[in-house]
Design a protein around this nucleic acid. Structure first.
Lengths: 206, 206
DNA sequence: CACGAAAGTTTTATGGACTAAAACTTTTGA
DNA sequence: TCAAAAGTTTTAGTCCATAAAACTTTCGTG
């Protein structure tokens, strides 16, 4: 924006610069091994200034994660546009896209930092950013369900928003479990999520 | 065990002593305000020795949490013995007991420390202890479902173990959300969990 | 354009979690 | 009784995070 004063422009560009440098560092040295001091030195600023822009080291990480969101959202939209045949497949694909996207971006260990910080700092910037992110995904799930309703594969009477929230949450806790355990692979979780949905179908269709 | 040598007995009693002292400190001063140094000083040992017994400050906290488990399990068993009328009520009660028990024991802020550490340290002692804890609860949920099947309220054909895992997980993520947000109260979550189950019933009964 | 206020940055100092290594003490078993 | 094993303490250090004071840059206004 040309309307910004010098101060504002400097602030924005410095923020970008910190993010770029942090990203490079995280990728080459890993999250835990890179220190705030390193990032500050690379950026020719003091460590305290980094804290001026980001709440915490994990906050810096989240800012990077949310950058990758646009891509994830596009992938999910593409999947929805492909009109999955049934709800189980749709939710399973949703989860799979999320997991694969996550793994293409960060290691499980680094994701654990993100998730753990997202719980611990519910009130901070970090927490809020993360919640927004989830809300976007819930919205997508909702859009998907509405499509199913339009195709008459789900009754109109069902509360789409409530269902979206619930199915997203179910998918999300399986994502947590995926991230928490290094020995659990994508297919493992896929099977489990499908089994979840089949079990629910089995109880509630009675 | 009388068969233990002096060394082993000392080790066990010192561990107990640290736990007791930590519990007292956490209760009077709160989790974040108490330092490992304080606990060590109270116990007349060095801070490093505390780390010799527990992986981390959060690990100390978890050891305390798991002490309270026996009570929780008894409450859940009592609820199951009361033969709830339907699955929705049963799962909702399950969640409610968990939340109330949690709140009677620690503040949300302290629970956030527990949960965030449980994700971050999936491999450590901490993570394993926490997983075991969840498994016990899943087993209880399973027992409850088996009862429902015996009472012919759920078809025999349903995979009880899978369903238990799924319903527990759903309940659990709502617990996470309860803990993550100071402004969300027990009833709030109760409504949401019921709505989840009703939505699922609505889709899958078609 | 000059000057004071506002915003932003750096320096300095501090606290606390956690780790590693070396020195020391106690227990144990032969 | 004595040496090895186990456990503890001291010491020293790294890093995250925060606070306060001093300093520099930008901005709006007369």
């Amino acid at each position: 924006m040309a309307s910004m004063g010098l101060r504002e422009r400097q602030k924005a560009s410095r923020r970008e610069r910190i993010l770029e440098i942090a990203k490079a560092r995280f990728q080459t040295d890993g999250y835990t091994a890179t220190t705030i001091e390193m990032i500050a030195k690379d950026a020719d600023i003091s460590a305290v200034t980094v804290y001026n822009y980001f709440d915490s080291k994990a906050g810096l990480l989240l800012a990077l994660v949310s950058e990758s969101d646009q891509l994830l959202i596009r992938q999910l939209k593409a999947m929805i546009a492909r009109k999955p045949k049934n709800l189980v497949d749709a939710v399973a694909s949703f989860g799979q896209i999320l997991r694969r996207h996550a793994m293409s971006y960060l290691t499980k260990s680094t994701w654990r930092e993100v998730l753990s910080a997202s719980i611990n700092e519910g009130s901070s910037d970090f927490g809020r950013t993360y919640l927004e992110l989830d809300n976007v995904l819930i919205e997508l799930m909702h859009a998907m369900i509405v499509e199913f309703q339009q195709r008459k594969l789900i009754p109109e009477a069902v509360d789409g928003a409530a269902l979206a929230d619930c199915l997203f949450s179910l998918q999300n806790i399986r994502f947590f479990q995926f991230i928490a355990d290094d020995n659990r692979d994508d297919e493992d979780i896929d099977r489990r999520l499908r089994r979840d949905l089949e079990s629910l179908k089995a109880v509630f269709s009675a």
